[in-house]
Design a protein around this nucleic acid. Structure first.
Lengths: 259, 259
DNA sequence: GCATACCGTTCCATATTATGAAACTTTTTG
DNA sequence: CAAAAAGTTTCATAATATGGAACGGTATGC
């Protein structure tokens, strides 16, 4: 009988308060009973937690519907976190250069376990098609150019762990759904120095990505240029690859990576 | 002896947890004792709160320095909040149109008491000068074009209240620092239908702004085009005013405002 | 190189705080 | 208009957070 001393949150009410917040962030406006039922907490408890959130300015109650929702106070906190993020501040001008010369959407992402988190986005300067991505969005690694760019720097067993830890979902008919193909593609990424996402994630969207070396021992960040297949022809991607690799090199060097 | 039954937070530890988070968001990496001293809480208490934040994924501890900092988990929460914000989703294409035709920085802001909060920003498509603004940033109303656009819709006593509730700070030699001038400018805004910020907030930056009608009874949102004085000449501003007012009208109508 | 001071961490008895049942009020629904 | 559901308030009780104290590690100063 293995005595598992499982780690537990030392502050119960903190845990519950964030459960409520996450619930509201996920579902938008909710009623008290709805939250109570979803979390399995007594309505009296939920009410108290909500009053606390309102008191602190993180939530509010709609006067008409009486439903609860989050305010923008965490948006403000989020902004401060991003402004303090040194890698973002350093990368920004480089990414803007990529945006200027391609006119396409540019992203900077950060690894979070088996997923990547979008921390910066520059909207396309041409065309009217908008990508669904947005700052704060979390996405699986295995089906994104940036994710593959990061995975390509990891030893096989870690790649395997990410694969096993991800829920493999087919988004388009080109989505990678078997591990062998992922491995083959990662070798190509290592060979070429950049990663491609050829409509694997979103129909009609092609993307070229590269990672950033030198921030931590393990690679944690990557960036990409994405656009509609109409403009992002295979040929154009090959052209952009030159710029992407150049930015990768310069930026990695500025961050502190040599060779 | 007026028995003031001041409202208090019904969940003490929630209050403290957010005090810790806000502290870290404001100051970045901090040591345990530093937080403890700043908040006047016992180090043991702060430690427990931090362990809770780490457990939930909102904070982490640097292995080297042992200092604590926030992770990007609230960035993710923030992203979800913004994606649910209907007015932002509706306004986005209109603001992009303004961005396309001007090439300058475009903002959408939301009133938060005496301040405005930036909820959306489109970077300038021309030039290399970057504005310091960012999504999540909070700014006083009295010294911004968007702020004046909103204030111009309020009755005098509310304007007065905002003025009194703001810390008047001179940012440039053109910053409004007396109430009479603010009032005069607000009359102009009412007359013209748009607000100007002529280097009042940031040296070398001119901005034209208008509010959005129809979302709530009170006006809560405004948008703007900003750029360096070199490109944003008085004449160009007059030209852009036409587009700004057009977007104001169309957008207000789409939101649900008639006449 | 040793002593001291400082920081971070852990433990624990105690007092405070959060809890949830129940009662009450308001709103919605049939 | 009645009944049900949602939201709010109260309160005794149980559980939780609290902070003093002590421990261990690391940096600082002599």
């Amino acid at each position: 009988m293995a005595e598992e001393k499982e780690a537990k949150n030392p502050v119960q009410s903190a845990e519950r308060i964030f459960q409520v917040m996450e619930m509201l962030a996920e579902n938008g406006e909710m009623g008290l009973m709805e939250i109570s039922a979803a979390l399995g907490l007594h309505k009296s408890t939920v009410h108290r937690l909500l009053m606390s959130l309102i008191y602190m300015g993180y939530a509010k109650q709609d006067e008409g519907s009486q439903k609860y929702m989050l305010t923008c106070k965490v948006v403000s906190m989020s902004g401060k976190i991003l402004e303090r993020m040194d890698i973002l501040q350093i990368a920004r001008p480089y990414l803007e250069r990529l945006s200027d010369l391609s006119g396409e959407t540019v992203h900077l992402v950060q690894r979070e376990g088996n997923n990547i988190l979008y921390v910066y986005k520059i909207e396309a300067k041409v065309g009217t098609i908008r990508m669904v991505s947005h700052v704060g969005m979390v996405h699986p690694m295995y089906c994104s150019g940036v994710g593959k760019a990061i995975m390509a720097t990891l030893p096989e067993r870690e790649v395997r762990a990410i694969w096993d830890g991800s829920e493999i979902e087919r988004h388009t008919d080109k989505t990678i759904v078997d591990y062998d193909r992922l491995q083959r593609e990662l070798s190509e990424v290592r060979r070429d120095g950049y990663a491609l996402d050829d409509e694997e994630n979103e129909k009609g969207v092609r993307c070229i990505a590269a990672c950033l070396y030198g921030y931590k021992k393990e690679v944690t960040h990557a960036f990409s240029i994405s656009g509609p297949t109409s403009r992002m022809t295979r040929e154009r991607v090959r052209e952009l690859a030159v710029d992407v690799k150049k930015v990768q090199e310069e930026l990695s060097r500025e961050i502190g990576y040599y060779k």
